[in-house]
């Protein structure tokens, strides 16, 4: 078995013990948010006909946005807390690094597992979206690619960062001060056209906006091929740069 696959199996073994809980959470979260914000708040929004949504029902607008945001959250969480814990003495990384595995194998195996988690919770989310009748199953599957890409665009660079972090409070800080603002202002809950002009330009540059736009295009259809290419290119580039940087920091951290 390739060394990276061994590391992947380690994470899968661990996951086998807790998978039930994560599946429940992965289904419950979108279910609750779509019911409350989409269906509940949606009644008020749709009745108001503000024009910002150009006639799209609020639930239809919200679902792909939340889906991309959830992919970001899964990617961020899986790429930070477990990586931080594993990199400490007594964690999995130093133990794995004492075997023939190279740091790059450890990174590769863990990255593969994160991809698996992002895709799995994304598919569960999509099942809920289909159940709400927002899109059909075929269209939903089309959104799986954007979901994976969005999650990995966050996960890859963050793994490289988290492996060198010295205190857990930094991870909490990242979540609170970076992830939450992105969540709120990247076109998830309302179109960024409502933002003040200067903020709109900032929002456009964030990876979550790119992910939301890509996912929304795949989910609702009618996306411009040029725009889609830009979104995909942006997210792929970020993922690739993240992997490159993470290789360096894993090697630096685990070879000392």
């Amino acid at each position: 078995m390739a060394p990276a696959l061994r590391e992947f199996c380690y994470w899968m073994d661990r996951y086998r013990r807790v998978w039930r809980g994560t599946v429940v959470i992965s289904v419950a979260n979108p279910l609750l948010f779509l019911a409350a914000m989409g269906a509940g708040l949606g009644k008020l929004v749709d009745a108001n006909h503000s024009g910002h949504l150009t006639g799209t029902p609020y639930l239809d607008f919200l679902a792909p946005g939340l889906l991309a945001a959830a992919a970001m959250q899964t990617g961020v969480i899986e790429a930070t807390f477990p990586v931080f814990q594993s990199a400490r003495s007594g964690g999995n990384y130093p133990a794995a690094a004492a075997t023939p595995m190279r740091p790059v194998d450890i990174l590769g195996g863990h990255l593969l597992f994160v991809a698996f988690r992002v895709l799995l919770s994304g598919l569960l989310f999509l099942a809920v979206v289909v159940a709400f009748g927002v899109v059909g199953p075929a269209r939903a599957l089309l959104a799986a690619g954007p979901v994976l890409l969005t999650g990995m665009a966050f996960a890859a660079p963050l793994m490289g960062w988290a492996v060198g972090v010295d205190r857990q409070s930094r991870l909490n800080g990242l979540y609170r001060f970076v992830v939450m603002p992105l969540y709120m202002f990247s076109g998830t809950f309302f179109p960024i056209s409502q933002l003040p002009h200067w903020l709109r330009s900032v929002a456009t540059c964030t990876p979550l906006y790119q992910g939301v736009a890509l996912t929304r295009g795949a989910g609702l259809g009618g996306s411009h091929p040029g725009a889609t290419a830009v979104h995909v290119g942006y997210l792929l580039a970020l993922t690739a740069a993240g992997v490159w940087a993470a290789r360096r920091s894993y090697t630096r951290r685990l070879n000392r």
């Binding site: 609020y58 309302f190 003040p196």
Partner: peptide, 9 residues
């Protein structure tokens, strides 16, 4: 304030 408020009115 910025976003959802305008959608809901």
């Amino acid at each position: 304030g910025v976003g959802i408020g305008a959608l809901v009115g």
